[in-house]
Structure formats: structure tokens, C-alpha cells
């Protein structure tokens, strides 16, 4: 194994650094406390959603309902959590539990997660529309304060990214239960033989995804000040791309929480960079895809070199 293959975090870090340098070159104004915050604050909810998606990918599944779920969490946050905090908290808790339940059902009935979550995306979207038929609601004051806080030295977005990465790294990469959870994605049968209940582990992974999905919705409302039933639909694809960009893989429980956070930030930055380049919007989606392919190609090349050596 080469150095690069062993440290899968290197490539995401380098991608982000290169893109950041290019952005600073094109738009020197971004190179400031204020600029960095503007550049990255909307990446915070995406990073949380990416962590949620990572939890699902970690157990070899994929979640196509995440964008709708985050939108729903945002709608609950902007309505119930603001008007009746206790009730709001209960609903959000129920959402997390229903995600855990979903994980258990998917495992128990051996359903393909891709189909179940695609179906659930309509359920979440429907409930979100029911709660907030037209855009509106308001962010709870404390949440707005939290998301617009101006900490010393580094802007909120950067501080939040470090905290999210550190907490999830400890949880997934360092703790005992994290190792077992990754084991479910690596080899569920041997985890089961070792005496673990796979159904509970899957429920836990989905529950964690639900938790981070809810956090993403809350963070988004804190930034946007209000919600919309369609506010986060883009997050489904962004979160999957973020996980992969951050060094995760679709199978084998190979994920990296730090990489996922960096992946989310890279994707956000890529969009801003293309906008600074004044690229026509027709080309922007394609260009975003091109950046993704570039990074994945680089990873493939490094890995092949690694296995040859």
C-alpha cells in the first residue's frame, strides 16, 4: 500500500486546497473572515446531510429520500419548533425514530434501500407540504443566533466544519460501536456471527442518519430564516457526491467522516468557483460533474498504483 492509498483523506484535502487557492486567486475578497463565511456557511447543512448519507452508505445502502427528509425537518423547525418548542422537539425525535425503524424494516424484510427510500421521499415531501403548504415559517431565535454567531479567529462555517468532523470521526472511526457499524458494511455476516444483532446496528445507523438529517434541516433554517417544502431537494445528490468525493465507497463500509465534511465543502466551493468564472449556467452542472469525475479519476489512478506497488 502506498502512502496515498493508506491515507484516503489526502486526496479530498488536496482537492479542496487546490480549489480554494483557485477561488482566492479569482476572488481575493473571499480571502477574509467575512468572505470565508459567505463562501461556506451554506455548506454547513450540506456537510451535516453528507454525514447522514455517509451513515447509510456505511452499511451498504443508499438514501434517495435525504433531500426530502431534510426539507421536512426544516419545515418542522420553522413551524412547530418555533411556535411550540416541546412539540417540535417531539416531532423531530419521532422523525429520527422513524428513520431507525426504516433501517430495521429494510433489513428485516430484505428490501432494497434504494427503492424504499425513493418511496419514502414522497412521504416526507407530502408531510412537508402538509405542514407548510406555502413557503414560510420562521427560524427560532436561538437557532438563528447560533448559525450567525461570529466566533473569534475563524468564521462560523469553519468552526462548525471542524466540530462536525471531529465528533463524527470520534463516533465512527474511534469508538467501539463505530467500528462494528463499519463492520456491518464490510461483512454483515461475520458481525452477526460475532454475536451482534445486525438489525439493531442497521437501525442505529439509520437513526444516526436521521439525527444528522434533522440537524441539517435545523442548520438550514437557521441560515435561511424560514423554510419551504422544497428547500433541500438538491441535498440527496449533493450528499451522495460529497461522501464519494470525500473518499467514501459504496460498498465495504469504507467511509471517512472528515472526508465527507471536506467533500461537502468542496462541492459548495466548486459551484461558487464556477460562478466566479462567469460560466454560463447551462455549463455549470456539467462542469460540476466534470470536477467530480476528475477527483474520482485521480483516486482510481492512485489506488491502481497502490495495488501495483
Amino acid at each position: 500500500m502506498t502512502f496515498l492509498a493508506r491515507h484516503r483523506i489526502i486526496l479530498p484535502v488536496v482537492s479542496l486546497a487546490v480549489l480554494l487557492a483557485a477561488t482566492f486567486y479569482m476572488q481575493p475578497r473571499a480571502m477574509s473572515y467575512f468572505g470565508l463565511n459567505l463562501l461556506f456557511n451554506l455548506a454547513v447543512p450540506i456537510a451535516l446531510a453528507t454525514i447522514a448519507q455517509m451513515m447509510i452508505i456505511m452499511v451498504n445502502d443508499i438514501d434517495l429520500s435525504l433531500g426530502a427528509f431534510v426539507s421536512l425537518a426544516a419545515c418542522v423547525t420553522a413551524t412547530f419548533l418555533n411556535d411550540a418548542p416541546m412539540l417540535g422537539l417531539l416531532i423531530l425525535l419521532a422523525l429520527i425514530l422513524s428513520y431507525a425503524l426504516l433501517g430495521a424494516v429494510i433489513h428485516a424484510l430484505e428490501l432494497p434501500a434504494i427503492v424504499v427510500t425513493l418511496g419514502m421521499s414522497f412521504v416526507w415531501g407530502g408531510i412537508a407540504l402538509f405542514i407548510l403548504p406555502s413557503p414560510g415559517g420562521a427560524a427560532p431565535g436561538w437557532l438563528r443566533t447560533l448559525m450567525t454567531v461570529k466566533p473569534p479567529f475563524a468564521p462560523m462555517a469553519v468552526v462548525a466544519a471542524v466540530i462536525i468532523a471531529a465528533v463524527t470521526h470520534l463516533l465512527i472511526m474511534r469508538s467501539g460501536i463505530g467500528t462494528v457499524l463499519r463492520g456491518v458494511g464490510g461483512n454483515a455476516r461475520s458481525v452477526a456471527r460475532a454475536g451482534w444483532s445486525v438489525i439493531r446496528l442497521k437501525a442505529l445507523a439509520y437513526g444516526l442518519a436521521g439525527l444528522f438529517g434533522v440537524l441539517a434541516g435545523m442548520a438550514l433554517v437557521g441560515l435561511a430564516t424560514s423554510a419551504d417544502a422544497n428547500i433541500a431537494l438538491r441535498y440527496t445528490l449533493l450528499s451522495i457526491a460529497g461522501v464519494i468525493l470525500g473518499g467514501g465507497e459504496f460498498t465495504g463500509g469504507k467511509v471517512s467522516p472528515t472526508g465527507a465534511v471536506i467533500g461537502a465543502f468542496t462541492l459548495t466551493l466548486a459551484a461558487s468557483f464556477l460562478s466566479f468564472m462567469r460560466l454560463s449556467p447551462d455549463w455549470q452542472i456539467g462542469a460540476q460533474g466534470a470536477i467530480l469525475i476528475l477527483v474520482l479519476t485521480a483516486r482510481l489512478i492512485f489506488r491502481q498504483k497502490g495495488s501495483e506497488a
Partner: peptide, 17 residues
């Protein structure tokens, strides 16, 4: 590039920058 509020919020912040 897509008709989404999150995209446009990011775009507005870029325009400020």
C-alpha cells in the same frame, strides 16, 4: 443552474463576495 432556493442563496452570497 437549478431552480432551487439553496442554489440561489449560495449565488446571492457569491454576488456579495
Amino acid at each position: 443552474s437549478e431552480n432551487q432556493p439553496t442554489e440561489q442563496a449560495a449565488q446571492i452570497q457569491n454576488l456579495i463576495l
